[in-house]
Nucleic acid binder design. Structure first.
Lengths: 166, 166
DNA sequence: TATTAATAATTAATATGATAATGATTGAGA
DNA sequence: TCTCAATCATTATCATATTAATTATTAATA
């Protein structure tokens, strides 16, 4: 049955996992008038005072062209601000406004709580195995973070490190 | 560091895995003038003679409203056709055209090959652990397929288990 | 230093995702 | 049978994804 083979393929299983997990987090952000992606951006900004749009793209895993619009809307909502870099005038820093920063205290507890419940719904061992295994898949050939010098979490195009151009 | 905590959260790890895995499959479909989602739809249709849009939505994990447009474009490209059900005139069957069916022979070998290489890039044990663990996360409380009577991988609210109307 | 190759952010064009709402049908139950 | 809830496909609306192209700026190099 090639059918089941497709449904149990890694991409489909990954999609099913996301479909099962994300709604609860999406709902929390929605309750604050935010989309899932806007929430992801804010979460990163809450941890970084100064960050360029490019770095924000790397940390959120949102491609730059999409990020431009997301930041636009967050800016219009008064939650973030843009600031051009002086040293490199190509770069643009993004940062939270006072209002945007204040949201952290309202949103993060709910997020943390939902995440804790999610984690509890699975065996601790399984949880770790999945996270480690997925990192291994996402980063073939590259050891765990910290094991080797050069190691960026989400490398852009530049194909896998070791895989000889599968 | 709450920072790394976010980057190693399940949702972000899932996204990173998809970002690492999908480009190679997407490229294959793109070379045939298809998007990733159009390819997903075709893959399912290649395995199902008659299938309603609703069932197609369940099997592809693509929400019905998105699917409508995707099928529209596949139809305009002459790769699939719609057919209204006689017994239940609400339902619409989707099926491949001769042209759409013929594509399978051209595309699937490349897909299968890429998938095999992907699988080889990871320890067999890790691979299985990840798939099983993710299914457990996507289907909390539900045993492995076959373990218990009632159990389908991607059921919406109360979708049919055996596809009774095919 | 004049040129040229990279980078960062953005725009443009098209396709998809998420939610709510609609119209057509069907099914369940009083 | 009549009414009402539920289902299926679709539309509408807004936000995001993907890829290519553009603009501004910086770095690299002859």
């Amino acid at each position: 049955m090639a059918i089941d083979q497709f449904n149990r393929s890694l991409p489909m299983v990954l999609h099913r996992a996301l479909d099962a997990v994300m709604p609860r987090f999406r709902k929390i952000f929605n309750d604050f008038g935010l989309t899932e992606q806007q929430g992801r951006v804010l979460r990163v900004l809450w941890e970084h005072e100064q960050i360029t749009l490019r770095e924000l793209s790397d940390l959120t895993l949102i491609a730059a062209p999409s990020l431009v619009g997301i930041v636009d809307r967050l800016q219009r909502a008064g939650l973030v601000a843009r600031r051009k870099s002086d040293r490199d005038r190509r770069k643009v820093f993004v940062q939270t406004t006072r209002t945007g920063a204040a949201l952290e205290a309202d949103i993060m507890p709910a997020i943390a709580s939902a995440y804790a419940r999610l984690k509890q719904s699975v065996d601790a061992g399984t949880w770790e195995q999945v996270l480690d295994g997925l990192e291994q898949i996402a980063n073939p050939g590259g050891g765990r973070p910290g094991d080797s010098p050069d190691d960026s979490p989400a490398r852009r195009d530049s194909a896998p490190v070791v895989l000889p151009d599968l």
